[in-house]
Design a protein around this nucleic acid. Structure first.
Lengths: 148, 148
DNA sequence: CCTGAAAGTGAGAATCACTATCATCTGCCT
DNA sequence: AGGCAGATGATAGTGATTCTCACTTTCAGG
């Protein structure tokens, strides 16, 4: 290989970028995916799979629900979206790269990212509990500035 | 009202306690619930609704699955159990009163409680984002001492 | 003890979110 | 250009949870 055409970074073994979202290696950028990625990139809050499905259908009436789930799964694998935890219906958020957590507004569903994090350090957990931490989930729930 | 019989605290407006678990006011302590609460109180890790159902059925073959969900929901309302978040199957953990988080073993499902918490303080979140924090969820995933 | 009303119950149907299957199609490397 | 890994839509299926309903139990008050 080698005589790269336009986007050498999107070839074998590399990740594909599109509007700030990342797809795994070997994932193809089809029209269906492109429209889903557009919708996700334009959003500023959380979304459900069905939300996305219904919106996307307005522009591409043939799009199937399975494709929505497949696309979300691809983005989840690269960390570009993350499932939101909490007591509400299942939803997802777009994630920028890097370690951060979310401030979720219980009133309007908006999600703000924050790099603040004080999860217990792996070293402390290991010393105190013998527990080998691999990762953690932290979401803060409350009311955003706009709704307050 | 007033001439309380045995357990004044379990009457109108108060919460019902049983083996460290709390039911909401006006919730009755029926035999079915008692056996479910016993199973939960005796557990030291996480459990699923179906786990609980199958175990409870061994002693009370007529118990219905809906009753299991209804009981879990009551305990959830008082904070005595909490749904576990993560990518595995849906599960719950028993929660003692007070602020704490969980160390969840990805290998055996055991759950350890910890009072360590470094969630961003509400004051900081308010100052930086105008966000009024009401609560947060923090679970740390990894491998417990026994599995390591 | 009764009794009425509220709360609880089991069974099974229904819903919801998601996954698997499959025949067909298409980006994209060579 | 050609081929094939990967993608697609439709639909059936799955597993978890909730709903419905007819019936029973609990318990405060008489």
């Amino acid at each position: 290989m080698g005589r790269g055409r336009r986007s050498p970074a999107s070839r074998g073994g590399q990740l594909n970028q599109y509007r700030g979202l990342t797809l795994p290696a070997r994932a193809r950028l089809t029209p269906q995916r492109r429209s889903l990625l557009d919708l996700i990139a334009d959003r500023d809050g959380s979304f459900t799979a069905v939300d996305l499905f219904q919106e996307a259908r307005r522009r591409a009436p043939d799009l199937g629900l399975a494709t929505v789930y497949r696309t979300i799964e691809l983005l989840r694998r690269t960390g570009s979206v993350r499932p939101l935890v909490g007591d509400a219906r299942p939803a997802y958020v777009r994630c920028d790269p890097g370690h951060h957590h979310h401030l979720v507004c219980l009133s309007c569903g908006a999600v703000e990212e924050t790099d603040l994090c004080g999860a217990p350090s792996p070293a402390v957990l290991r010393r105190r509990y013998g527990f080998l931490a691999e990762g953690h989930e932290l979401d803060v729930y409350g009311t955003c500035a706009d709704c307050a």
